[in-house]
Simulated scan of single mutants.
Amino acid sequence: MKLANPTRFNRISRIVTPLMALLCVALLIPGLYTALYSSPPDYQQHDSVRIMYVHVPAAWVALMAYASLGVAGIVMLVWKHMLAGLWIRAVAPIGMAFTAICLVSGSLWGMPTWGTWWVWDARLTSVLVLFFLYVGIFALDLAYDDRDKGLHASAWLAAIGLINLPIIKFSVEWWNTLHQPASITSITRMANPAIDPSMMTPLFLMAGAFTAMFIVLALARLNIVIAHRKIRMKALRMQAESI
């Protein structure tokens, strides 16, 4: 509730943003080195497995970003916190970009692995639905002359779209799909993961770097969105006073 105040949020974000930027660089440099050079090629996929170090972190961030949109949508609809709506406006294009990276890198990985760029299986289709949910949220926000009504409509779609997240997560277990099952499904699997530590280390480094990058981009965009709203509200007040 305290973070619902834009001024207080800006004050906190000015501290968090540079720290996350430093963390991103600190993780990205060793992550890229281990992913591209020190990690071994897969015995079946050979060097094409290195696409995993972009594809999987992008997928994780895309899901995490949408989860934050869904929660923000519920907060805005229930408690009427405008900052939650502005978070949706700020994060939707970022999540859309990470989902696009996930889809494109998955296609590039699928061609040498599966022999095809795309199949309409449950995992790929549900992630494509996630991309269209992001596009829909972004489009709804711009579809209204009254931007607050656009945020309200976007909040509804973000909240309703949460139902797609468990479908993405469990699609490889509920249906027979070409997509491989998750190598790390829970904390209990961490002790005996289905992926070698030489590959898991760069994967986690890249996942941490992508997460920190998302936080930096989201906070930067949110500060811009807040500033634009303040300018727009001031312009509307001046216009009303002049009538």
Rank of each mutant, 00 (worst) to 15 (best):
V56A: 14
V56E: 13
P57M: 06
A59I: 01
W60R: 01
A62T: 13
A62F: 08
L63Q: 11
L63V: 05
M64I: 14
M64G: 15
Y66W: 08
A67C: 09
S68Q: 05
L69K: 10
G70M: 10
M76E: 14
L77H: 10
V78M: 04
W79A: 02
W79T: 00
H81I: 00
G85K: 01
G85N: 04
L86C: 03
L86P: 00
I88N: 01
I94W: 03
I94Q: 03
I94M: 06
I94V: 13
G95N: 09
M96N: 03
A97Y: 00
F98S: 09
T99F: 02
T99S: 11
I101M: 12
C102M: 14
S105Q: 02
G106T: 07
G106M: 05
S107H: 12
S107P: 11
S107V: 07
S107A: 15
S107N: 10
L108W: 04
W109E: 11
M111E: 12
T113K: 09
W114F: 12
W114L: 12
G115K: 06
T116S: 15
T116E: 15
W117G: 11
V119W: 00
W120C: 10
D121F: 10
D121V: 09
A122T: 06
R123F: 13
L128I: 04
L128D: 04
L128M: 15
L128N: 02
L130R: 01
F131P: 08
F132H: 14
F132E: 13
F132S: 13
Y134E: 10
V135H: 05
I137C: 13
F138S: 08
A139Y: 09
D141H: 14
A143G: 04
A143P: 05
Y144G: 00
G150H: 12
L151G: 15
L151V: 15
H152M: 12
S154Q: 06
S154D: 08
S154C: 04
A155Y: 07
L157A: 14
L157K: 12
A158C: 04
A159R: 12
I160K: 08
I160V: 15
G161N: 08
L162P: 02
L162A: 05
I163F: 14
L165Q: 03
P166D: 01
P166I: 02
P166Y: 01
I167H: 03
K169R: 15
F170D: 13
S171E: 03
V172N: 04
E173Q: 15
E173Y: 12
N176A: 12
N176G: 09
N176L: 06
H179Q: 14
H179F: 08
Q180N: 00
Q180Y: 01
Q180D: 00
P181L: 00
A182D: 05
A182Y: 02
T185C: 00
T185I: 13
T185D: 11
